[in-house]
Amino acid sequence: MANDIAVGKGEPGCKKIDPILVADNVTRQFGGLTAVNVEHLEIPRGKITALIGPNGAGKTTLFNLLTGFDKPNTGAWSFEGKNLAGVSSYKVARRGMIRTFQLTKSLSAMTVIENMRLGAQKQRGENFFSSLFRFLWKGEEALITQTADDLLKRFKLNEKREDYAGSLSGGQRKLLEMARALMGKPTLIMLDEPMAGVNPALTQSLLEHIKGLKANGTTVLFVEHNMHMVRHISDWVIVMAEGRVVAEGEPSVVMKDQAVIDAYLGAHHDTDLGTMKKGK
């Protein structure tokens, strides 16, 4: 089937017309367990890509590897054509690849708005010497606060602006973390289960927001177990199981793939995928 993303047919590790992230031979072992074993993977630029797979498939581990939060046993990958393997995590974020965490990392003893402000990159006031002179960063701080307030409204967190992040509910923390990542103006945003625990009414509006990001040229890569969301917003779906990429393609195609159905519904244990835990 023809598509405007892959070169040729969608199959595991297929070439993309315009990839933003290209990974080769990335493996990560924990003791005897191979958590990630990706031979070749390309993420299409300017699209929304979903990464799905059963629990323990290696999705989070792959995120950790690509963003420098974990070291692979082997592998190389590049972002926008430049090597990114071995680059420390903060530099990955500075280069425009910003991720969120499956287990949220809200900064509990800071207020929601301070969490948001921290997300902005290249702040002048973050330099020690300028920090002492408020007039040097006052203007920038006001702009950052403006952006933060807009996002908070979008994420329905504006009422919580002055609350400590530690007092937020689980779903609100997810939202805060995603909004905070957006403060950094990423070119590629990597969301690890952004909708876990977020109520359906809000999910809908956030999905629209994610589509809006795409419209502004941001590339989105997200992990999600909610198939509705995957079907609704993604342009491309990558399926992982037991550390490998087992299927790739447009959502309408991939979701019909027998191997994927097996992985998620748990039927036909003895297909290529091997046995695995049931997904949601």
Binding site: T67, F69, S88, S89, Y90, A93, I98, R99, T100, F101, K105, S106, L107, S108, A109, M110, E114, R117, L118, G119, Q121, Q123, R124, G125, E126, N127, F128, S130, S131, W137, E141, R180, A181, M183, G184
Partner: peptide, 19 residues
């Protein structure tokens, strides 16, 4: 903002790195 980064580090280093 410099102090804000420090407080962020006190709360969760990895979160601050990811930013």
């Amino acid at each position: 903002p410099w102090g804000r980064v420090l407080k962020g580090i006190r709360e969760d280093e990895d979160a601050v790195r990811s930013l």
